[in-house]
Each structure stands twice: as C-alpha cells, then as structure tokens.
Nucleic acid binder design. Sequence first.
DNA 1: CGAGAAATTAACCCGTTGGATAAATACTGT
DNA 2: ACAGTATTTATCCAACGGGTTAATTTCTCG
Lengths: 235, 235
Amino acid sequence: MAKAKRVLKWQRDPEGMRIRILEAAKQEFSAHGLAGARVDRIAANAGANKRMLYYHVGNKEDLYLEVLEGAYEQIRAEERTLDLEHLDPPKAIERLIDFTWNYFIRNPEFLALLNTENLAKARHLKRSTKVKSMHSPFVEMIRTVVNRGVESGDFRVAVDPVQLYISIAGLCFFYLSNSATLSVIFGRDLLKKEARDERLAHMVALVLAALTGKSTADFGKPKPAGLRAAAIQPV
Amino acid sequence: MAKAKRVLKWQRDPEGMRIRILEAAKQEFSAHGLAGARVDRIAANAGANKRMLYYHVGNKEDLYLEVLEGAYEQIRAEERTLDLEHLDPPKAIERLIDFTWNYFIRNPEFLALLNTENLAKARHLKRSTKVKSMHSPFVEMIRTVVNRGVESGDFRVAVDPVQLYISIAGLCFFYLSNSATLSVIFGRDLLKKEARDERLAHMVALVLAALTGKSTADFGKPKPAGLRAAAIQPV
DNA sequence: CGAGAAATTAACCCGTTGGATAAATACTGT
DNA sequence: ACAGTATTTATCCAACGGGTTAATTTCTCG
C-alpha cells in the first residue's frame, strides 16, 4: 500500500553535524586565522545553522581549540605508525624527513593552524589539557635511531634528538608555509612538482650528509643559472 | 613685554606622525595579524586620531602593505652590509647563519608579518611593485661563497644557493616563529639564553658539517637526559 | 599680518559579527 | 499514539569596527 512518505524538512544527525562543523571550522580557521574566521561562513560550509555551532561545540574560541586539538591528534596518530626502529639509521632518518614533508604537503591547514596559534602565543594550547597529555614517543623514537646510528658507525655524532626534530620540521615547514612569499620573491613557483622533489632531495641530502659525513649525489645539483636569473631574492 | 605665549593644543609634525603611525601599525599587525589588527588601537598607540591613518597612509590594507614593504626594506638594507666576500667560505656561512638568526631574534615582528602575509597567500606582496623591484644581490652573494668554497676544497659539493638560503632561513625561522607552541609541547622554554645559544651552535654545526664533511664539536652534545625527560613531544 | 593650505580633531555613519532567544520539528521510549 | 526530549530553524540585537564628513587649529609665505 503506497503509504505517502511524508517529506521531512530536515533530519537529525548529531554526529555527522559535529564532524561537518569541525571540518568546516578547520578550513575556515586555516584559511583566515582566528580573527579572520567568520562564524557564519563555518555554519554555511557545514550546511548548518549558525546556532548549531554553539549547540554542538561552543563559542568561536572553543571551536578553534577543538580544531587545533584535532589537528594535533591526527598527526600524532600518523606518527605512531612510522616505526623507525626496524630501519637502519640513515634509512630511518630519510623516512622521517619524507614523512614530515609529505604530511605537511597533505595537510596545509595544519601549518596554517600552527602559525595562527603561535600568533596567539600558544594561548589556547596552554589551556588545553588534551594536547599536553598527548605524550608522543616520537622524540624517544628519534633518540633511539640516533643512538643506533652512532653505535653502528653510520653517524659520526650523537645529535640532540629535539634539535634534530626541530631542524627537520623547520626545513619542511618554512618552505611550505612561506611558499607564497618565497615564490613571489624568487620569481618561481616553489610548489610545482619538480620544485617539491628537488626540495625533498636537498633536505635529505643536507641532513644525512651532516649526520653521516658522506655526501650524496643530490645534495648539489644547482639548477642551470638561466632558470633563476630573473628575480633572485631571499625571504 | 610679557607676551603671553599662547599654549597650542597641538603641533604639526607630518613626518613624525607618519613614522609613529607606521611603527604602531607594525606592532599591531605583527601582534594580531591583518584581520585581528584594530585601526583604533594603531591610532591610539601612535598618539593620533584615527583619521590620521587615512590622511597619511590610506586604508587598513594600504597601511599593512606599507608596513610589510618597510620590513622587507629594512632586512635588505642590513643584508647589504654583510659582505661575505672577504671571509673564507666556512666563516662566511657561519656569519650568514649568525646574522639571520640574530636578525630574526631582534625583529620578531618581521616573522609575524611574513606569516600573516603567507596566510593571505602573498596577495599584497604580489601587488607591491616596490618589493618586486628590490632586487637583492643576496643569493648571488651566497652563490659566490659556495663556488669559492668548492674551488678551495672547503666544501665538498656545490649546493644550490637558493636551497641553501631557504634551509638556513627555515632552520632559524621555524624555531623562533613557532617557539610558543614548541615550548608548550616540549615543556621547556626555547627562548631562554642557553636554549638560543644551543640552537645557534646546532644550526651552524649542521650546515657546516653538511657542506664541509667535517663535523664540529658542538654538533652533538645532547643535554643530560634528566633535563628533558618530562614532556617530550614534537611539533 | 592675513589668507589660503596643511594638519589635526571631533563626531558620526552604517554594515558586520558574534552571540542570544524563542519557536518549530524530528525522534525515542513507553 | 503521544509525551518528552534532542536537534534544528528562524529572528533578533547590541557592540564593534572600518571608514567618512565636517569643523578646527596651526603653519607658511607673499
């Protein structure tokens, strides 16, 4: 019997709604920063009413913090799958660089969120119990790799793993996070495939050369001068 | 004849006013970003009326661009005084790192402005004829140093000077620009004197080791484990 | 010294924005 | 089927913030 199904004006979907809100908020905050983000735009992009944000999450800052915490959770989760313990030390470092680089490329919002949070002097992160309790074994993982490398003779010196981690992250982060201004200033597109490949090779070569003392082929390889003769300028 | 000098309500000082406005704007934009900056606050901190901003410079975005251009001009000017040509290659690289590092420390607003501009995808910089015409001989300077180093046998490989510059800038920039979040996450103050000194030594050692193939004493030197046992976590 | 230009102040305008209130609609268990 | 609750929509609003208008004061130069 054709029971005329009544057409609903809307359906309930609290979990889905929450996810859509947080995803929209992530895009908005990473695209415009905390102050530049618009609550109405988040709602619209989440396919929701503005009131929903306050119902499901809280005010703008709560929303922002939740997004930030989510971003940290995500990278921590992926880090845990890295297990560098089974690789020989140089391979492990290469893999670490490769992972960091590609994670940043795949998640440009993460970079923007970190910049936004640093503009705020980590004010929200300090408040977050969640992030502080997310102890990652990452640095210890690196320490182990370095120690193994020294013992095996692959590495010449026992570098501080925290410094090494910051260096690797910095090499990747700065290039990608500042690619817009750098591209203008150097007059070339730093995000195109070839440029990205070249950068990865450079970083791996730089770090491994410093650790092992052996230079790799890719380390040098300056591009033909003509290609970057035009606008050459730093920062 | 006691001519009762009339007390003025205010004095004219267009140049001074302009300077104070731009300085206040630099502080405001670097502290809050473009969207977070408040025109009234800039006026107040410049000891001026809000109308003055529009009279002397233009609207908020004009003001921002002028600040950004000024920041670039300033670092370019200091770069030009570096002349690395007279130093032997390893010393020249060390000096370059040292300069970059200390410039960033002395001018934290510069870092924040760059981040803000990158959040805007370099939208303003692209519009700026000024910055694009500020051709700096900086990269050529680095190229010369590298070439000299290769010829003298100090350096093992001819690294691309653009990559090298981005790497050096990145090592410095990321550490300082992200010091707030990193300090929370690693649970230690990355900006205190000892930490800064340690970082500089690490960067110099890392880059020189990669270039020369000789490791320096400072490269390793991990801190006693107890000092950083507590909260160890990356990014 | 006085008129016109330059610099500065004071007050206002109006769209935007974060947030709040209240009403409507869809579910759920009984 | 229906009462009660969870979820969503529809409006509203007060503060804020960038920008403007108009009047006021100081300076300059003939």
